[in-house]
């Protein structure tokens, strides 16, 4: 259907931690302007899979392609160079420094004298946070002093500030209130319109069905199946997650229940 080559393609990705195959021959892909929901029970391997894409882990085997080109992602820096930004489930914030320092961590703005340009970074932070969480005021305090939702906003701000082409969101709204969750949903739709591809990990099936174009379901490190959200019902997807049964509307993966 889609003639453009996928923005990101992960093929036959496997990784094991001390004998446990956390991710086992997983293939997923993502097109520009598409939202793909990654679903699965706790410990299914979703976070591990996306950490391979974001450069936190190196896959034992498999291939990653960006715009059809095979790439080697050996570090978070490599991933960012390819325009892949990540909101981690754990948020990955340095608690002892402020929002601006976190957003620009590793990519600080410098003055002509090579010193930190804190004023510009703070001004930019005010701008990007204004988009996400207009009530946010505590720019000077270490993020440790922020609420869970505010911290999540900072993590999201960091991912969207640098003009990502691929955005990975690992349970981005887990700590957000209803208003902030709506804001993130609107943000996702806006980014989608801009042609950004988004991997969205969430346990909230309603959210995923509202936002995602396709879903891939994982179970015990393997893909049960992939489906367009229009082709399957929420109950069928729930069945995929719980029992690994692949419905007719989905393309079965290696992890699908046989028979």
């Amino acid at each position: 259907m889609d003639i453009t080559s996928p923005l990101v393609e992960m093929r036959d990705i496997s990784i094991a931690f001390g004998g446990i195959k956390a991710v086992d021959a997983v293939s997923v892909d993502l097109h520009p302007g598409e939202v793909v929901g990654l679903l699965g029970h706790n410990g299914a391997g979703k976070s591990t899979l996306i950490k391979i894409l974001s450069g936190a882990y190196r896959a034992d085997s498999g291939e990653i392609r960006v715009n059809g080109e095979p790439v080697s992602i050996g570090s978070p820096r490599d991933a960012k160079r390819h325009g892949i930004e990540t909101i981690y489930q754990t948020l990955a914030l340095a608690d002892n420094v402020d929002a601006a320092a976190n957003i620009f961590l590793g990519r600080e703005l410098l003055t002509p004298w090579r010193t930190l340009d804190d004023s510009t970074m703070e001004a930019e932070t005010r701008k990007v946070m204004g988009r996400l969480n207009p009530h946010f005021r505590r720019f000077k305090e270490p993020v440790k002093a922020l609420s869970g939702g505010q911290r999540q906003s900072v993590a999201i701000a960091r991912a969207i500030y640098f003009n990502a082409r691929v955005l990975i969101m690992d349970e981005p709204t887990a700590a957000l209130g209803p208003a902030e969750t709506r804001q993130v949903a609107e943000l996702i739709l806006e980014l989608k319109r801009q042609g950004i591809g988004i991997f969205l990990i969430s346990h909230d099936l309603h959210d995923v069905f509202d936002l995602a174009d396709r879903v891939s379901v994982m179970k015990n490190g393997r893909v049960v199946g992939t489906a367009r959200t229009g082709d399957v019902t929420q109950d069928e997807v729930l069945g995929m997650i719980i029992s690994g049964k692949c419905p007719a509307g989905a393309v079965p993966g290696p992890g699908a229940l046989r028979g």
Binding site: P76, Y88, A92, A94, A101, L105, R107, E108, L116
Partner: peptide, 19 residues
């Protein structure tokens, strides 16, 4: 110096940020 403090706050976060 910013990296020094970030590492102290959360070494994993610093690394994931490309430090």
């Amino acid at each position: 110096g910013r990296y020094v403090f970030a590492i102290g706050g959360n070494p994993e976060a610093a690394q994931l940020s490309g430090v």
